[in-house]
């Protein structure tokens, strides 16, 4: 169960990037998780909820996580056909019947984007209050 550690990396990267953009509260995180990246989407979602609670100052109460799945795909080095790899026989090209396939997609594990609000909003709020 390394999803807690992986989600820790996600939070660290977003915190660092957000600080550089003066974003102080996160509302949404979007990940890309490959089918053969060895990370489980459900466990990642659970880990996100744990970190959200621990870092309440940094996350909106209703902050959401979206996980896009990257499908596994392999390509045969002999016939150049791409195919969906069978888990047990990843490198077997179904056309050639030989272990001549290489994974070309499905190993990714990326933070695609995040959404948050910054310092500026507080002054907006202050203005609105003053207007009323």
């Amino acid at each position: 169960m390394h999803e807690m550690a992986l989600m820790g990396e996600v939070i660290d990267i977003i915190k660092e990037d957000a600080a550089s953009k003066r974003i102080i509260k996160i509302d949404m995180v979007e990940l890309l998780v490959g089918e053969i990246s060895n990370a489980m989407p459900d466990a990642l979602k659970m880990a996100f909820e744990v970190y959200k609670e621990q870092n309440a100052y940094f996350f909106e109460k209703n902050a959401r996580i979206f996980i896009q799945i990257e499908k596994a795909l392999a390509e045969c080095i002999l016939c150049s056909k791409s195919y969906v790899p069978d888990n047990n026989r990843i490198s077997f090209c179904p056309v050639c019947g030989l272990p001549s396939g290489k994974i070309i997609s499905g190993e990714s594990f990326q933070i695609l984007s995040y959404e948050g609000s910054g310092d500026a909003d507080e002054s907006n709020v202050a203005h609105r209050c003053a207007d009323q």
Partner: peptide
């Protein structure tokens, strides 16, 4: 105001 930031960063970038 909400701001969307596109990262496309590998999650293991610090490890790497």
């Amino acid at each position: 105001m909400l701001m969307k930031v596109t990262l496309r960063t590998d999650v293991l970038t610090n490890n790497n």
